[in-house]
């Protein structure tokens, strides 16, 4: 299509689209209220999380217990996406792998400035600690496996920023990261299957529930937090490794 025709068609269609979307939005109730005729899901969940599951963070309860099966699907979306990225960026038959080059050709290798190196190294430990905190306290405070996993994944990134590619490779070798990611992903399914064996429903919460407010409350939710954290951290680090290898290591045929 000629660009002007396309632009015209697009603008007209978008105007109609926006119009009908706004018309629909006007029929919604204000934020925080729901249609009084139907029982609100939020109220129902809030009344059940502490008495029945001893979890004080309702969002984590919905994510990993009430609707835990959705989260399993989401986790595997991430797994499949990282797998796909690794697949598409793989070393092809006509490419070769050489030592990592950090700069353009013909320039001297320079390290990052002292300030950057100092700051990144200093931030690595707090990042790891904070990440572990968010992962393990998912059922008590806002956070959980996903959030903590991504924070954990930022630690190797800081290591790369502060040093060279080979320091990143030493801290997070590819086989270890792949194994961690797969164990995290498979672990979630195994926990679900264990629920199956104990009480005849997949993803049933079968571990002892503990006291509300404790770190180890919520039964299998605590365990799922750990596996999801492992999977997400592994996934993001793998993505970083794959991209960096594509840029620094793989050479096109000349």
């Amino acid at each position: 299509m000629r660009p002007l025709v396309r632009l015209g068609l697009f603008l007209v269609s978008t105007a109609v689209f926006a119009g009908i979307f706004v018309a629909a939005l006007f029929d919604l109730h204000p934020l925080g209220h729901a249609d009084p005729l139907s029982a609100t899901y939020g109220d129902l969940v809030n009344s059940l999380t502490v008495p029945e599951r001893h979890i004080t963070d309702a969002v984590t309860a919905v994510n990993f217990d009430f609707r835990g099966f959705d989260t399993l699907g989401e986790e595997f979306i991430m797994f499949a996406s990282v797998l796909g990225a690794a697949l598409l960026l793989r070393k092809h038959a006509d490419e070769s792998a050489g030592p990592p080059i950090d700069k353009q050709q013909g320039r001297q290798i320079t390290l990052a400035s002292d300030a950057v190196r100092l700051l990144s190294v200093a931030l690595v430990s707090p990042a790891v600690l904070f990440g572990i905190y968010v992962v393990t306290h998912g059922q008590v405070t806002p956070g959980g496996g996903f959030q903590g996993g991504v924070i954990l994944a930022s630690a190797p990134l800081l290591i790369y920023v502060s040093g060279e590619f080979h320091s990143l490779r030493r801290v997070a070798p590819r086989w270890l990261v792949e194994a961690a990611e797969s164990i995290g992903a498979g672990g979630y399914v195994v926990i679900g299957a264990a629920g199956l064996l104990s009480a005849n429903a997949f993803l049933h919460n079968f571990l002892p529930l503990g006291r509300p407010g404790d770190v180890f409350s919520g039964g299998s939710v605590a365990l799922i937090d750990l596996t999801v954290g492992l999977e997400v951290a592994g996934g993001f680090i793998l993505l970083l490794l794959v991209f960096l290898e594509e840029v620094l290591v793989l050479r096109d045929p000349i």
């Binding site: 969002v59 968010v134 806002p142 924070i151 991209f243």
Partner: peptide, 23 residues
């Protein structure tokens, strides 16, 4: 929605621009 905010900050402000830069 603090849970969502936590994820969004790390992914939207860190991971996404990083991937754009690497590409």
């Amino acid at each position: 929605a603090p849970d969502v905010a936590l994820s969004q900050i790390v992914i939207g402000a860190l991971a996404l621009p990083l991937m754009i830069l690497l590409a």
